[in-house]
């Protein structure tokens, strides 16, 4: 039984993490909010595939909302429910940072679903033989933003669950992410400069197509989708590391703080590179 784990050798730690992560992943996959999100994803995709020709790129908003935003609530509730029994959990052989790492790994579950979704949409686009005006590279990058958002949302949920104790924190985090994302669409209304791109792309999730009016032709915003995806990944890393810092102690905590600093620099760098690309809009 657990007595075997009393002396955590490095190999034992990895095995414990794998076991814990598998258990957390199962809990994630069984969460009713996650399952509802998956159903919503299927339904929303089915109803939007019809207008692929004009706004194909922005389909990524569907997994970002159904898996990412809903995932904030799932991640938060999973984290809260593991920390609630208090003494019993604290006495378990696996330490807090390890349990947080397992929770962070469980956030790959919605990511996997989003990835499957992205592949499916890409195949549907290819099968429909629609003219991909923006090129496959950009199109794939835009779909990837949805996949990363599906992982990032739950990670923010874990982060908030670790650092706060009040019950509505998951909802507040979801509102904050949505408000931040929506406010950044102001960048699409600005003139097409690098500053406008910065306002547009600093959000945790960004949509790329817009139009100057109801009947005006749609256009694609400037900036680099792939560097933006890198920025999102760095944000995910920040969330996961910051969540692990809470329970870590001693040298490990110091190391995590250093990782956090490095990731922050990487995030800023990726955002700068995403905005440094040509800001001109491409009419579709």
């Amino acid at each position: 039984m657990s007595a075997v784990l009393a002396r955590p050798a490095p190999s034992t730690r990895g095995a414990t993490l794998r076991t814990l992560a598998a258990a957390e992943a199962r809990r994630y996959a069984r969460s009713p909010v996650f399952l509802a999100g998956v159903l919503l994803l299927l339904w929303a995709t089915a109803t939007s595939l019809g207008d692929l020709d004009d706004a194909g790129g922005d389909l990524a908003v569907v997994p970002a909302a159904c898996l990412g935003l809903a995932g904030v609530l799932v991640g938060h509730s999973l984290t809260r429910s593991t920390s609630r029994p208090g003494d019993a959990v604290r006495a378990a052989p696996a330490d807090g940072a390890l349990r947080t790492a397992a929770l962070a790994l469980a956030c790959l579950v919605p990511g996997a679903v989003a990835l499957a979704w992205a592949v499916w949409v890409a195949l549907a686009l290819a099968a429909a033989d629609l003219p991909v005006a923006i090129g496959w590279g950009r199109q794939a990058g835009m779909l990837a933003t949805g996949v990363v958002a599906a992982v990032g949302g739950p990670l923010v949920g874990v982060l908030v669950g670790r650092w706060t104790r009040f019950p509505g924190a998951g909802l507040v985090a979801a509102v904050v992410l949505t408000g931040w994302t929506l406010a950044c669409t102001a960048g699409l209304m600005m003139t097409a400069t690098r500053w406008g791109t910065l306002v547009h792309l600093n959000a945790p999730f960004a949509t790329w197509t817009s139009a100057d009016g109801p009947d005006a032709p749609p256009w694609l915003a400037g900036g680099s989708p792939w560097w933006y995806v890198a920025y999102q990944v760095a944000l995910c890393g920040l969330a996961a590391t910051a969540a692990m810092v809470h329970e870590a102690t001693g040298a490990r905590r110091t190391r995590l703080w250093r990782v956090l600093a490095v990731l922050a620099v990487v995030a800023v760098g990726c955002l700068a590179l995403a905005c440094a690309a040509d800001p001109t809009r491409v009419f579709l």
């Binding site: 706060t164 104790r165 009040f166 019950p167 509505g168 924190a169 909802l171 507040v172 509102v175 904050v176 949505t178 408000g179 931040w180 994302t181 929506l182 406010a183 950044c184 669409t185 102001a186 209304m189």
Partner: peptide, 30 residues
Amino acid sequence: APSLRTSWLVGLVVTLVFVGLGAAYGGDRG
């Protein structure tokens, strides 16, 4: 009541700031 504690009211203010930002700059979606 938990929802009258300071932490909840701080959460409310944070919520309102971001809902306000989204509504002000997010167009129809806002």
